[in-house]
């Protein structure tokens, strides 16, 4: 009898627990779904509010807003081409420099560096990632700009400026400021992000895969290139796009070293402008509706540009995966 009673209570307890579990699970699912949907809602909110705020500029200037370099705050004529161009060019320079360097850092730390060095260098990278961007900007302006102006730009003018096709990119006044300088400062800022992601994912490659390759007589480069990279490709590209996203949206550091002028120039040594820098510089004193609207429209365009770049990356990744499947 007592055994029977215990069994009943036990099953009741079980049932209660099961019900409580189900309830907790439902709540948990709701909370997690809420968190997931929050991202979408925030995204849609940003897109819609910037589109709404910029609608006056977009409807006034139409498609010309994208193709005009005019930025006449007195005559109220605005075009976004110069900042869009500056944003893309500086981010591209940043990635061209940052990706190989980050790859080298990550490869060295995971494959070659002695064990005692790995932790301090990894910690240093993470510290670099935590430095506020205005510090990079000030370093850029007070330390790097004079070096660019006095040493690097004259050298580039003399040695690279006459080369066929790429020459015009490297001909310009020795200001020290400009798109190349901004790109280099951005590269230094995104290297910690890209390299720490790369390092993390390189560590996930199973040792037996690498050791098998070594056993077959591969060199370190071959192991990294043919085993580690294919294994981690998706995550590596993800890391690169994390860095790209940061480079596209960076504001303070770029404002310090870019020169902030609405002019389109082929030379990377000329000053330019970026979307984020334009907004940061001019929003406070945007004294007419159309001026303010143009700045918000710029914010919307930055959103669109980032979206296009990320979508292109996704497509490229899918293409790669498909090719991988056929071979």
């Amino acid at each position: 009898m007592s055994a029977n009673a215990t069994a009943i209570t036990l099953s009741q307890v079980d049932e209660q627990r099961a019900r409580a579990d189900a309830r907790a699970d439902a709540v948990f699912r709701l909370v997690v779904r809420g968190a997931g949907l929050f991202v979408l809602a925030a995204l849609a909110g940003v897109a819609l509010t910037t589109l709404w705020g910029g609608s006056e500029a977009l409807s006034t200037f139409g498609f010309g807003f994208l193709t005009s370099t005019e930025w006449d705050t007195v005559g109220h004529k605005f075009g976004a081409l110069a900042p869009i161009y500056g944003t893309l060019v500086t981010a591209a320079i940043a990635l061209i420099i940052a990706v190989p360097v980050s790859f080298g850092i990550a490869m060295y730390l995971t494959e070659l560096a002695p064990a005692w060095l790995r932790t301090p260098v990894s910690a240093a990278i993470e510290l670099l990632a935590g430095i506020p961007s205005i510090i990079y900007g000030m370093w850029g302006l007070f330390v790097f700009v004079p070096i660019m102006g006095r040493n690097i730009i004259p050298w580039l003018n003399e040695h690279v400026g006459d080369i066929w096709i790429i020459g015009p990119l490297f001909r310009g006044p020795p200001l020290g400021l400009g798109m190349l300088t901004a790109g280099i400062v951005l590269a230094i800022m995104v290297i910690p992000f890209i390299s720490s992601v790369m390092r993390e994912v390189f560590l996930t490659v199973p040792t037996r895969l690498k050791e098998s390759a070594y056993a077959l007589g591969s060199t370190t480069l071959e192991v990294v290139w043919d085993v580690v990279l294919p294994y981690t490709r998706t995550a590596v590209i993800g890391g690169i796009f994390l860095g790209l996203g940061r480079a596209l949206g960076e504001t303070m550091a770029v404002t310090f070293v870019l020169g902030n002028v609405h002019r389109l120039s082929l030379s990377l040594l000329e000053p330019g402008n970026s979307i984020a820098a334009t907004i940061a510089n001019e929003f406070a004193e945007a004294d007419s509706e159309i001026f303010r609207s143009s700045l918000i429209a710029l914010a919307f365009l930055l959103f669109v540009v980032t979206f296009i770049v990320l979508a292109a990356a996704k497509l490229m990744l899918m293409q790669l995966a498909k090719r991988q499947g056929t071979t």
Binding site: D72, T73, G75, L175, G259, V261, P271, E285, D287
Partner: peptide, 11 residues
């Protein structure tokens, strides 16, 4: 104006 379209230079 509080900001104008500068014909030359850097900002």
């Amino acid at each position: 104006g509080t900001s104008v379209q500068w014909p030359a230079g850097v900002g």
